[in-house]
């Protein structure tokens, strides 16, 4: 997956975003072992401490968990990932409608535009 970072925004927040997408889209599946902090840091080309901070945040959100001596794993609870996906989709939808509202289009019109887009 491609990633770029915006130096204006704290890096750990951007890492958190990427990691959420990886979890939602199943790049890392439920119960799967995650790469080490160091491996992540090298892949993202970020500082290991920053990576650690992002992973700690994911852990406090119960999206991942640590098995002592064994490393970090994605939660086994599929519902948690489903919920994350749902929240993420709502955020994306909201921002779409907000953008459309700014150019004077209501919800009904906005949906029409959506349906008109060919994939």
């Amino acid at each position: 997956m491609e990633f770029t970072f915006d130096n204006n925004i704290p890096i750990y927040i951007q890492l958190l975003e990427y990691m959420k997408i990886y979890l939602i889209s199943g790049v890392f599946k439920c119960g799967e072992k995650l790469p080490s902090v160091r491996e992540f840091a090298v892949t993202f080309k970020v500082n290991p401490n920053t990576m650690q901070k992002a992973l700690a945040e994911l852990e406090s959100m119960k999206l991942i968990y640590t098995e002592r001596t064994n490393g970090k794993f994605v939660t086994k609870d599929e519902k948690v990932i489903e919920k994350l996906k749902d929240e993420y989709a709502i955020t994306l939808a909201k921002s779409y409608f907000q953008g459309m509202k700014r150019i004077g289009l209501g919800k009904a019109d906005s949906i029409k535009y959506l349906e008109g887009i060919k994939e």
Binding site: N7, I11, T50
Partner: peptide, 15 residues
């Protein structure tokens, strides 16, 4: 800390 500074100033370290 770099991320703290970015958060506080809403800008990159370079800026």
């Amino acid at each position: 800390g770099t991320d703290e500074l970015r958060e506080k100033e809403n800008a990159s370290i370079d800026d």
